[in-house]
Write a protein that binds this DNA or RNA. Structure first.
Length: 797
RNA sequence: GCCCGAAUGGCGGAACUGGUAGACGCCCGGGACUUAAAAUCCCGUGAGGGCAACCUCGUGCCGGUUCGAUUCCGGCUUCGGGCACCA
């Protein structure tokens, strides 16, 4: 018996859908906006791992269509950025050429998967008509003081020859090439994302997102509340401001530490300590953050000066690199008795350690830092207070003296927004010697990225655009004097921070999208993508959305209502890579098994939110299932088999199972449900048309070609997608008799069929009868009956 | 170091609110059809014992709650992930 001709069937329906789309574009139905994180065409092809998310969103979109929604399910290309540029360099092509080729190939792949993307809504972030608006948003941010220039030590990747945002340099390592980042002092454009820290944190609560992602963003924003304390310095007018979350331990602060980069280091260093301190600071500056982090032992030097602890008097001031310049104030009060790092430092340099918190109120000696709770001791007038009360009381005491304030600190840093590479959106700024940085007027947008032969990165930290002199030199829009264009470009993330706003109106020329289109479609109802963007793209997009809300462009302030994290597919224990690299290509799978089989296997492989392993022979199972179903259709579709009660019940059961599992996004069990019920259909002598009809509609989101083919073979002329999702009658799920388990003392002792509506007495009587031999002579202490499940006899031995 | 999450057959995984553990599939073994192969169909497949009906054990480990625990509670172990001197 031949396998069904998937190749012919799939070709036929793909062509049909192109002719007659499954959705009417002028629809008045309720909207549903289902979005995939768009790919960056930095490799030549997609692998089966990418498809997992695309299949899930496609299934969901088709399901929503069958439920009567008008669905927007678009696709585009995040084509600027380092990865695309590096890929072009590798291919020895201009990035505009290489991305065009990559896009063409990936688009072909997506079409062969029969996703329902409407290619009229395609976005390409490198299209000037698109990046005009990326620049426009930047211009608005500049006007609102959210985009600013600053010279500061930044993460620099020597491999990529580019600065990195904090989010791109997690662990001191370049997010892209994994080489260690060094610190480099550079003037860069920054976006004041910190101004939105509190809102980015608070609004997480309202989102239907995986808890894991919310937690990652919460931790990344890193809010902590405490007190800022100004410490006077002995014999100096300088004050050292330190942030602490534990003002209650003030009496235990036996020394202070400044970060090596702290501005007071020079001033507070006494002449006898000068050489040592200078050498230490110089050494610290020369080391990468990776090196610093790998230090097991604390290092530091004494400045020679003393600060005044208002509770205990003079305490020495040290310099050490375990204090970070960019968190808090870059200086800390050290409480070795109750902080493990300070304890380690104090032990190494023989500084005094005292207990000021005690679980039982006694001054027991400390073997290690005590970080638990208790009451204050050795703290004078504050003795006996709890930690919480102590925080309050000591902060009040400092406030009264004018040397302390309650403060909130965040780990979130402003976003380094410029890159020293060619392949990105030009930053729409003109530097004028008289006017300073001037934003390019809207009428001159977009600032086109010039076509150049040589776009390779320079090692100086300067953008290759700086060499394009006739592009760089331009009159200042304000004073008309000679000005120079900003030559840095925007980071990878700029275009993707707002692209979801563009899809409903991709051709808009006078706004990033028309207010009408935005109102009709946004926010995104369902967003599908990998966890890797948890604190990158997803945080940036939320920031942009809130800013555009603030300036009146948007009426909502969160872009993605629901987020689904698709798990990664590994192959032979390794991560798949884009392009000709490592992995399984759909191009190899499709000719063998077809698109429907691959779609089903992508879902069947494991729960969609989990990482999993591609199994080359696993797809055999779903392929066999499709063949089996097709044989039933060939057997029964044109026959008139009677619709028995048994079949009707089964039909309602199938609708129930598939619908509830799909609603839970348990796609792997949806597929197993289809298999299970198809096995049942097969074993029945013949199946009625109504059941096959329902099967076709249920199957449509998952294996659309097979579904259409079944629908057609039942004699229908319209598309299966013009139908509505079937419903089930809960009454039909009930059966006359049920098989329930019989237990004695919780151990299975047999099964029994009883009427479904049997009362407790009848059920127990029947079970007693069935277990007569086993219960003989035993005294039944208790009988438990859970209708439809079990009967359990508790007997005494 | 801190914070999350997970652990079920040879493998991927299933099990609704505490109620028959192992659905569905892969792999493997046996059989049918075939000149043969492919495809397909049927049977078996957690471990151990028994001719058999059946019995015992079994969801990482130890303990608890319960008539009954993969599910709830306490304590571990291992693996995965996030952050990492954040004061």
């Amino acid at each position: 018996m031949p396998r069904y001709d998937f190749s012919g069937i799939e070709k036929k329906w793909r062509a049909r859908w192109k002719e007659v789309p499954i959705q009417n574009p002028a629809s008045s139905k309720p909207k549903y906006y289902c979005l995939d994180m768009f790919p960056y065409p930095s490799g030549t092809a997609l692998h089966v791992g990418h498809w997992r998310g695309y299949v899930l969103s496609d299934v969901l979109s088709r399901y929503k269509i069958l439920q009567g929604y008008h669905v927007l399910h678009p696709m585009g290309w995040d084509a600027f950025g380092l990865a695309a540029e590096n890929n072009a360099i590798k291919q020895r092509k201009h990035p505009s050429i290489s991305i065009a080729e990559n896009i063409k190939n990936m688009k072909r792949q997506l079409e062969e998967m029969s996703t329902i993307y409407d290619w009229n809504d395609e976005i390409n972030t490198t299209d000037p008509a698109y990046y005009k608006w990326t620049q426009w948003i930047f211009a608005r941010m500049f006007e609102h003081g959210l985009a600013y220039e600053q010279e500061m030590p930044l993460n620099w990747c020597d491999e990529c020859k580019v600065v990195l945002a904090n989010e791109e340099a997690v662990g001191g390592v370049c997010e892209r090439c994994k080489s260690p980042a060094t610190k480099k002092n550079l003037r860069q454009w920054m976006l004041k994302i910190t101004a939105y820290g509190e809102r980015l944190l608070n609004d997480l609560e309202s989102l239907d997102w995986p808890e894991k992602v919310k937690k990652m963003q919460t931790d990344w924003i890193g809010k902590s509340s405490g007190t800022e304390i100004d410490f006077a310095v002995q014999g100096s007018d300088a004050k050292i401001r330190a942030f602490t979350t534990r003002p209650d331990t003030l009496a235990g602060a036996t020394f202070m530490v400044l970060a090596p980069e702290h501005e007071l280091v020079k001033k507070l260093t006494t002449s006898d300590q000068n050489d040592k301190v200078e050498e230490y600071v110089k050494h610290a500056a020369s080391r990468s953050s990776v090196d610093r982090m790998q230090d097991k032992e604390k290092t530091g030097v004494f400045t020679g000066s003393y600060a005044i602890n208002p509770l205990i008097g003079p305490i020495p001031i040290w310099v050490a690199d375990y204090v970070l310049i960019d968190y808090g104030t870059g200086a800390i009060m050290c409480v070795p008795g109750h902080d493990t790092r300070d304890f380690e430092f104090a032990t190494k340099f023989d500084l005094p350690i005292s207990r000021v918190i005690s679980p039982d109120g006694t001054d027991a000696p400390l073997e290690e830092a005590y970080t638990g709770y208790g009451v204050l001791v050795n703290s004078g007038q504050f003795d006996g207070l709890t930690v919480a009360d102590g925080k309050e009381a000591i902060t009040k005491y400092l406030e009264a003296q004018g040397s302390g304030t309650k403060t909130i600190n965040y780990k979130l840093r402003d976003w380094v927004f410029s890159r020293q590479r060619y392949w990105g959106e030009p930053i729409p700024i003109i530097h004028c010697p008289t006017c300073g940085p001037v934003v390019v007027p809207d009428k001159d947008l977009p600032v086109m990225l010039p076509k150049v032969e040589s776009y390779l990165p320079t090692s100086t930290g300067e953008s290759p655009l700086a060499l394009v002199t006739d592009w760089v030199n331009i009159a200042c829009p304000k004073c008309n004097g000679p000005g120079k264009r900003e030559t840095n470009t925007m980071p990878q993330w700029a275009g993707s921070s707002w692209y979801f706003l563009r899809y409903p109106d991709v051709n808009s020329n006078d706004a990033l999208a028309s207010p009408r289109a935005i109102k009709d479609w946004l926010p995104v109802d369902y967003y599908v993508g990998g966890i890797e963007h948890a604190v990158l793209h997803l945080l940036y997009a939320r920031f942009y959305t809130k800013f555009l809300y603030d300036i009146g462009i948007l009426q909502f302030h969160e872009p993605f209502t629901t987020l689904f994290n698709i798990g990664m597919i590994n192959y032979k224990g390794k991560k798949m890579s884009k392009g000709e690299g490592y992995g399984v290509s759909p191009d190899d799978v499709l000719p063998k098994y077809g698109c429907d089989a691959l779609r089903l296997y992508e879902m069947f492989i494991s729960p969609p939110e989990l990482d999993c392993e591609w199994d080359d022979s696993g797809i055999e199972g779903v392929s066999r299932f499709l063949n089996k179903l097709w044989r039933i259709v060939e057997r029964d579709a044109t026959k008139i088999n009677p619709a028995t009660t048994e079949l009707a019940r089964l039909r309602h059961r199938i609708v129930h199972d598939i619908t509830t599992r799909l609603e839970n996004l348990s796609l792997n069990t949806v597929v197993s449900g289809f298999m299970e019920h198809t096995n049942t259909l097969q074993s029945l002598g013949g199946v009625d048309r109504e059941t096959l009809k329902v099967m076709a509609i249920l199957l449509a989101p998952f294996a659309p070609h097979m579904a259409e083919e079944i629908w057609e073979s039942l004699g229908h002329k319209d598309s299966v997608f013009a139908q509505s999702w079937p419903t089930y009658d809960p009454e039909m799920l009930k059966t006359d008799t049920v098989e329930i388990a019989m237990q004695i003392n919780g151990k299975l002792r047999g099964n029994i069929n009883i009427p479904a509506d049997a009362d407790k007495e009848a059920a127990i009587a029947a079970a007693k009868d069935a277990l007569a031999d086993k219960l003989e002579g035993a005294e039944i202490a208790k009988s438990i009956y859970v209708p439809g499940r079990i009967i359990n006899f508790v007997v005494k031995a």
